[in-house]
């Protein structure tokens, strides 16, 4: 039975095949994976917010797209991934409650997705799979043997990106 590694909220885990990294119940948060298909090294990061410079509490770097992604990149490189082979996939960023006058905080899912793309773009890592937006929760996992990123939902079934 391959190892199943749980990634909590505002948390990141890296590993190698045959481990599977999983994060349960993402709403507006984003699950960002990095994967090197040759060495089968990868990571999964569960961010809550787009930007650490806009926050009063930024000690936990895995909470934010702008600090969490570069940190995870360093960790997978340490495990032997090659930056030129790394590919990223992202899922999450829902708006769970629809309010007519949605404030910024209600739209944080959208801002999280945007920030994740910008940070990955800035690092030159291509995004080869994406499932963001909507108004439903997601449980996401990446199988480091294959690089398959699964997105499970309650009503919209399960898909691979």
């Amino acid at each position: 039975m391959p190892e199943l590694v749980k990634v909590g909220m505002a948390d990141a885990k890296v590993g190698t095949a045959p481990a599977t990294l999983i994060s349960y119940g993402l709403g507006s948060c984003i699950g960002i994976s990095l994967y090197d298909p040759q060495t089968k090294v990868g990571g999964l990061l569960h961010i809550m917010l787009p930007d650490s410079t806009q926050s009063r509490a930024n000690e936990n770097r895995a909470k934010f797209a702008d600090t969490g992604i570069p940190d995870m990149l360093n960790e997978v490189l340490k495990l032997g991934a090659s930056k030129s082979r790394l590919v990223a996939k992202i899922a999450g960023g829902a708006q769970m409650f629809a309010f007519a006058n949605a404030t910024d905080i209600m739209r944080v899912g959208q801002r999280n997705a945007q920030a994740a793309k910008e940070v990955l773009g800035g690092l030159g890592i291509p995004i080869i799979g994406e499932d963001t937006g909507g108004s439903y929760g997601r449980t996401v996992s990446i199988d480091l043997s294959t690089g398959v990123y699964k997105v499970k939902t309650i009503d919209k079934g399960e898909k691979e990106i």
Binding site: G27, M48, A57, M96, G137
Partner: peptide, 20 residues
């Protein structure tokens, strides 16, 4: 109606801006 984590994240993200 959804996963508890997804629903709670609405509140937790607001708190996340201020603390851990």
């Amino acid at each position: 109606m959804d996963m508890a984590g997804a629903i709670l994240s609405v509140v937790l993200i607001q708190l996340g801006q201020m603390g851990d």
